[in-house]
Design a protein around this nucleic acid. Structure first.
Lengths: 308, 308
DNA sequence: TCAAAAGTGTTATCCTTACACCCATGT
DNA sequence: ACATGGGTGTAAGGATAACACTTTTGA
């Protein structure tokens, strides 16, 4: 509307590069696991996405399959650099074969968010290190309305008070822990520390960006066939299930998972079988790429009128 | 502020502000409907979101209920201003009572995207003005693979070849029309014009941003209770249904819609009834705000293992 | 022979979709 | 009376969740 005096600033691309290897979800990090790969946006790039793609590919020798934008924010953790815009992206790649060089490395997601791994049931860290200080945070609210609001947030996000665990709320959980002074990054921003939690911190707000990426991915695998970007060309159903379990952080029901795969016609048998592993050999499957074309898994969720 | 190094750029906030009044979906525009409200990002704002909120509220005297970030891109339509980053937001407000002043106005969504309104069945513009030139675009592909790929895209996005219409693909449809030279904005970027289509164009890439907003909103109403941000405090079920229909651009099945509402426990009766309108008086409902707390409508879609 | 993993059946329940039909009000 | 919109009932089909059980391999 108004062509006002604009403010000069810098744009930085930040990548959450995810992979799953040996059944564990991993993210590409720099600075020995303390930061996400990031680089300045070069105006010579054709687009933001192309900028990220070229940057990551030169850094890691990895071709990036799927890329999507996550979120853009002004990093408020760096007061001296308040005019930096961070544009974050989520990228999916297949298993990394060779370890990257330098201080770049693949790290387990759950070393940053130990409370997010429910594959073996509720993680001990929840009852031991999280819920007690969160309850203290609820109780110290200055008035009843605030206390009730906090109680409800804890219940919904952490599955307390009989609520079920919802694995999609990764970002909200991190932000709640931040607000309650339970993560190291919060104390850097002047929030009073309450307790120290298992789970590695990251520089700047990179752990928050990682939480955003995990949340987006967990939500997405439920309605788009993106898991296959993380799989080798051929795989068994168990490998596929374990990949989904690694991402969702939850154990899945084997038979029902298989039936679901069959029913959605997303995979087809290659005819080959596994060999050499423990147990009975399994059929190998491949993704049916002809069905990949922008197809949503789920239906409309709206009760459409007849025919139309 | 201080230095002006190589990669200095400017950030601009662009808003897709949506409302529904009289059963029609509307968007707030400037320049007589040719642009979306936009303004420079001021570093004094606490955050990007706060920047947008304050900007819109001073411009429109409207309180913004729900706001979410849409997408960030480098606008490639303005070569002279290639270092402008546009950060777009979707905002939802209740019915506007008084018309805004100046060249700001509320416009019907579907004046920009006439092919998106399927409330009365397939719009005539599809068969008349869109599918024929799209078929020509498919046929002129330089090789078989490209032609098949184009054919599949047309089928999936526009419901051709027996495919069902998917109302969520607003952005992909616009981008396909752009690529095929069927929208005015494409010719500004040097793509050969193929035919002229009903549907107003916008400045810069604002129509693409609007498509992004509509697509996001159409997808979101299916799993989050955001419709209520567009409703008055009390409403009838038909009004609610017509609002959803306006957003989705599709007619819904009355009885099943009502059952769905009941079953999800998102609304409750106020006890009051409508009066004066044609037909039998209807019960008035309100949104159950106690259930609003970050609750997703749908279930997990993953076959969880027992109990966990 | 046993552990490990693959694979098969079956059931109850719920949700979705699609019908058809009756009720209350204003004109 | 009739048009308009509100509201109820019911039945078929499919998806989901939860059971338990058999089969084939390597060690």
């Amino acid at each position: 509307m108004t062509e006002a005096p604009a403010h000069a600033l810098h744009a930085e691309l930040v990548a959450v590069l995810a992979a799953v290897s040996l059944g564990q979800p991993r993210v590409l990090t720099t600075r020995c696991g303390q930061a996400l790969p990031a680089g300045p946006f070069q105006m010579l790039h054709r687009s933001l996405q192309a900028g990220l793609r070229s940057w990551v590919e030169t850094q890691t020798q990895h071709s990036l399959g799927y890329v999507e934008q996550l979120y853009t924010f002004a990093d408020r953790e760096r007061p001296e650099a308040a005019h930096v815009l961070s544009i974050s992206y989520l990228g999916l790649t297949c298993e990394p074969e060779q370890p990257p060089q330098g201080d770049t490395s693949w790290q387990d997601w759950y070393s940053y968010f130990p409370w997010e791994d429910w594959r073996d049931g509720p993680p001990a860290v929840l009852a031991q290190h999280i819920l007690p200080p969160l309850q203290a945070w609820v109780d110290e609210a200055s008035n009843t309305a605030l206390r009730q609001s906090r109680q409800a947030r804890v219940a919904i996000n952490f599955g307390a008070d009989g609520q079920a665990w919802n694995e999609d709320l990764v970002l909200q959980r991190y932000e709640l822990l931040f607000e309650a002074g339970l993560v190291e990054e919060a104390t850097r921003r002047g929030i009073a520390a309450r307790a120290s939690l298992p789970g590695r911190a990251m520089q700047h707000d990179h752990r928050r960006i990682l939480a955003t990426g995990i949340a987006r991915l967990r939500a997405k695998i439920k309605y788009r066939p993106v898991v296959f970007e993380l799989m080798p060309p051929e795989f068994t159903l168990l490998q596929l299930q374990q990949t989904v379990e690694a991402l969702a952080g939850r154990g899945l029901h084997k038979q029902n998972f298989r039936r679901l795969m069959e029913q959605q016609h997303l995979v087809e048998e290659t005819g080959a079988m596994t060999a050499g592993a423990a147990g009975r050999p399994a059929k190998l499957f491949r993704f049916r790429s002809d069905v990949l074309q922008e197809r949503a898994i789920t239906g409309s969720k709206l009760p459409l009128a007849r025919g139309a």
